[in-house]
């Protein structure tokens, strides 16, 4: 093992602290920029209606046994008949979200804005860190770590002899990038914290397909066996009253 490295205090003053401060400042700046660019989403009537239909169908499924059989059958027909039932999605109309996205420029625009506000500052700061601070050992963690952490903490230094508890400047950048969320939620208020990790996940699962949930609800409704619960209630009411009277 190598002997202990002595870190120059100038590295602390000119690398470690500036890097952290810059990351925080950029995070705050990005929050305000994205706030400026954010367009309030205008809900589309069709989508709102589909959501509401799903809720109502779910209610029907959950409470089916509380309404008379005739009413239930009428409602089921209303929801799931093959001609114009609310939950029935004609095959050709089942739009896929991808096509929808391209047909609606606003949607694509929104995505672009979101991504721009995320990607541009990140590439810039990464380039900046790479250019000025590459190869620095910026800090030392006060406890020993196993070799596995080498790729996490010593990104950018290809020396296997350096102890793992030393942190390279590029790794310090990544730690800040992902670790400052708690600080942002303190500075900017809870719900305002920009969460990169979450955003990245969102990008993968973009596009909510309403027709899928509609047809799932339809299948659910179709297989329900309606059994009116009310006749049972008469007996229960009887026993309740009997207890009350005595």
């Amino acid at each position: 093992m190598a002997e202990d490295l002595v870190l120059d205090t100038a590295i602390r003053d000119w690398v470690l602290i500036p890097l952290s401060v810059v990351m925080v400042l950029i995070g705050v700046l990005r929050y305000f920029v994205s706030k400026l660019m954010r367009s309030s989403p205008t809900p589309d009537a069709k989508m709102v209606k589909e959501g509401q239909v799903v809720i109502r169908a779910r209610n029907l499924k959950a409470g089916a046994n509380f309404i008379p059989p005739k009413s239930f059958r009428a409602r089921r027909f209303y929801f799931s008949n093959e001609e114009n039932g609310l939950l029935h999605v004609p095959k050709d109309q089942a739009s896929n979200p991808q096509a929808q996205m391209f047909s609606d420029p606003n949607m694509a625009m929104d995505m672009m804005k979101k991504n721009l506000s995320m990607i541009i500052p990140q590439t810039l700061t990464f380039a900046w860190v790479n250019f000025f601070f590459s190869g620095f050992v910026a800090a030392k963690i006060p406890f020993p770590l196993t070799q596995r952490f080498r790729s996490m903490l010593q990104n950018g230094i290809d020396l296997s002899t350096v102890d793992v508890s030393y942190v390279s400047s590029r790794s310090w950048y990544f730690l800040n990038l992902f670790g400052l969320r708690g600080l942002f939620s303190l500075i900017l208020g809870d719900e305002n914290a920009i969460d990169d990790t979450q955003r990245m996940m969102q990008m993968g699962g973009f596009g909510f397909d309403a027709s899928k949930s509609l047809s799932a609800e339809k299948d659910g409704l179709d297989i329900i066996q309606h059994e009116w619960a009310l006749p049972r209630f008469e007996h229960r009411a009887e026993s309740v009253l009997r207890k009350l009277v005595q």
Binding site: L230, F233, L241
Partner: peptide, 16 residues
């Protein structure tokens, strides 16, 4: 008859 059933369920749900 249905009304009587729903009155009964009200009694059950309110505990009389």
């Amino acid at each position: 008859i249905a009304a009587r059933k729903y009155y009964a369920s009200t009694i059950d749900l309110t505990g009389g």
